[in-house]
């Protein structure tokens, strides 16, 4: 799969460095199911990579190995120069660099929106409460939730909750943002507000890896699109090539089902 990476590198206008290097990542579940079969992927700074694929293809599992939510048994992952290993210090360091947004939002229901956003900066980064709140308010304004800052998550719509979740991840000032099907649990009319937020974030130069089924978003925002199937990467290409001129039969088949 390394040959794909060569031609994507010239696609990036800026000469940028690799920030995620995953090579030969293998994972077996406890029941010996081989869920990731030697996956290689390199993501460059300021790049937006969209991972698509049928359900059960291992795409969510794959990005969840980046911040050690899923352990893997073979291969190596390096995030911003830090090797992901069993060393808890490295895991902590990587999680501080990597923000994640989940399909089910996973906001903390017992805390207000503002407290959700300030929690990690205060307890992990050890910021003063006032500073954390100031930055949280700026982020909430950016994602358009400022008026709801003192409400509880259950009082917000799904789209609003997901935008709070994005603000919460951004509050740690991560270098990389992972999105694990961020719009799959949303009503159709709320998908757009979340995608708009993600688009703004991409335009600001954030490195993003998104697992999503949103073709429009992938076409418009992604630098590269990845197709995964049954634990391997089938194809990596620019959005134009991926959607208009796919090289692999499996990709054509997948696209015919979703387009």
């Amino acid at each position: 799969m390394t040959d794909y990476e060569i031609d994507t590198k010239k696609n990036k206008s800026k000469a940028s460095e690799a920030i995620i290097i995953a090579s030969n990542v293998n994972k077996w579940y406890d029941n010996n199911f081989h869920v990731l079969k030697g996956v290689d992927l390199t993501v460059y700074e300021r790049e937006v990579v969209v991972i698509m694929g049928p359900s059960g293809s291992g795409k969510s599992t794959f990005i969840r190995t980046f911040n050690a939510l899923e352990p893997y048994q073979k291969g190596s992952i390096e995030i911003d120069g830090i090797k992901l290993s069993d060393d808890l210090k490295n895991v902590d360091a990587i999680r501080r660099e990597v923000g994640m947004v989940f399909q089910q939002f996973n906001l903390f229901p017992h805390l207000t929106v503002l407290k959700n956003v300030t929690l990690a900066p205060v307890w992990v980064r050890r910021w003063k409460k006032a500073k954390a709140e100031e930055i949280a308010m700026q982020l909430l304004e950016k994602v358009g939730i400022l008026e709801q800052a003192h409400k509880y998550p259950s009082q917000l719509s799904g789209g609003q909750q997901q935008r709070v979740a994005i603000a919460r991840a951004l509050a740690m000032q991560p270098k990389i943002m992972l999105f694990d099907e961020p719009t799959s649990a949303l009503d159709p009319e709320m998908v757009r507000e979340v995608l708009d937020t993600m688009r703004t974030l991409a335009n600001s130069g954030m490195t993003m890896v998104c697992v999503t089924h949103e073709v429009g978003f992938a076409r418009e925002v992604a630098d590269r699109v990845v197709l995964m199937d049954s634990g391997t990467i089938v194809e990596i290409a620019t959005p134009e090539d991926f959607f208009n001129n796919p090289q692999e039969e499996r990709t054509r088949q997948f696209l015919s089902q979703i387009l």
């Binding site: 050690a68 999680r95 923000g99 989940f102 307890w123």
Partner: peptide, 30 residues
Amino acid sequence: IPRGQTEAAKALGLSPPFVIVLIILPQALR
């Protein structure tokens, strides 16, 4: 408490004692 709560807290960089004290126990005890 759904597993997503622990995962979200871990992904934010909270260490296991913080996850328990700040996220899990307040919800579980309530």
